[in-house]
Write a protein that binds this DNA or RNA. Structure first.
Length: 256
DNA sequence: ATGGCTACGATCCGTAGA
């Protein structure tokens, strides 16, 4: 099974690139973030024509997530149960024998801001929810835009970013608390090239300078981590005209 | 130089992203 995640920064703008990428990469499951459209505007028919079913949790203008799958999905769940939130950031579904949770974690704006406090509250709620998913599903994958660079090697310029949002100690602690529910960062199961990132600022020629962060992740329960044969970031879509500022992360699992 | 793009929905600027 090939699992992927991609923050597309508007599914309407990126639909042609998305359809091309699906045809070329042929993931079995793709988690999408920042759809920026309500479910009524979601291009379900176009993606069905491309061979993919969709579980969608949409919202006008902001946020919005979906799980695309070649096989049909079941037991779809929108949002974090019991966490009052008007931002559509989570959708979960079961595909074949794998429970998939797609997340668009809050940005946090700046350390100490109201949005930062929201980010930390949100991560605490996500952790409680994932602990339950993990207890119910030994084969669990959690994929998305986490808006956290877990370690300094996930940051192009750790000195410049020190203490900033995406790398601050409380955010990294919240990240480790997610892993402590029984999940592994698939990317770090393998030797990786240095300075591999998943997001680059649109400004200041961020991509050309490889001034990026690794903030898009695929977490796997132990059972799936044991089946994982590769974990990569596909930079090709970031090179296109009018790209998303994020690149897809991909993890491959061998059959059980 | 604390800006610089990009998307959106409101209008020709403000909000948000990271």
């Amino acid at each position: 099974m090939k699992l992927a995640t991609w923050n597309v920064n508007s599914i309407k703008v990126r639909l042609p690139q998305l359809v091309d990428w699906l045809a070329q990469a042929r993931p079995d499951v793709l988690c999408l973030q920042e759809l920026k459209t309500p479910v009524e505007g979601y291009p379900r028919a176009e993606l069905e024509a491309a061979g993919y079913a969709s579980a969608v949790n949409g919202q006008k203008t902001y946020n919005g997530v979906a799980i695309l799958s070649r096989a049909s999905s079941s037991d779809t769940l929108a949002d974090i149960p019991g966490f009052a939130d008007d931002q559509r950031r989570v959708v979960a579904a079961t595909v074949a024998d794998v429970r998939v949770v797609c997340v668009y974690c809050p940005n946090g704006q700046s350390v100490g801001s109201e949005k930062y406090e929201y980010k930390l509250r949100w991560f605490a709620a996500l952790r409680e929810y994932l602990a339950k998913e993990r207890a119910a599903h030994p084969r669990l994958a959690v994929a998305g835009d986490f808006n956290v660079a877990p370690e300094d090697r996930d940051v192009h310029d750790p000195k410049a970013w020190e203490g900033q949002v995406h790398v601050s100690a409380p955010e990294r602690e919240a990240w480790r608390a997610l892993l402590a529910t029984g999940l592994k960062d698939s990317f770090r199961l393998f030797e990786q090239p240095e300075k591999t990132f998943s997001w680059w600022d649109y400004r200041m020629m961020g991509f050309r300078r490889n001034a990026g962060l690794r903030i898009d992740h695929i977490l796997l329960s132990d059972e799936l981590a044991n089946r994982c044969t590769s974990a990569t970031i596909d930079k090709a879509p970031r090179r296109l005209e009018r790209p998303s500022d994020h690149a897809p992360a991909v993890a491959e699992l061998r059959a059980a």
